[in-house]
């Protein structure tokens, strides 16, 4: 599933998960743009859309430690809680 990622003014990352279905014949890009507009994130910078399968490799529950390095979402270990780091290790083992 494609999700919409945002960089907030404080550097944190938010992720918008679509709930309403894609309309028949609607291109994926237009669909995500529509969902993004309704997410109402005026102060956040929209980052490239991601696939949840790719994010899972980072450990989805570690989102509070994610940063945007200008090209990709990365985990800042200094911000990650021990539980989050454990989740990252667990995710990479899968």
């Amino acid at each position: 599933m494609k999700v919409i990622t945002w960089k907030n003014p404080d550097g944190t990352i938010s992720i918008t998960y679509p709930v309403e279905p894609r309309r028949s014949g609607e291109p994926e890009g237009a669909y995500l743009d529509r969902i993004a507009a309704r997410a109402d994130m005026p102060d956040a910078e929209r980052l490239p859309d991601h696939d949840t399968a790719a994010l899972k490799a980072l450990g989805l529950d570690t989102q509070e430690a994610w940063e945007w390095n200008g090209a990709a979402l990365v985990v800042n270990p200094a911000k990650a809680t021990p539980e989050a780091l454990a989740a990252i290790r667990q995710a990479k083992l899968k």
Binding site: I4, S14, Y17, P18, E20, A39, Q63
Partner: peptide, 9 residues
């Protein structure tokens, strides 16, 4: 409901 935005824990 259009979407859910996760901002952290």
């Amino acid at each position: 409901v259009s979407s859910i935005t996760d901002n952290g824990s």
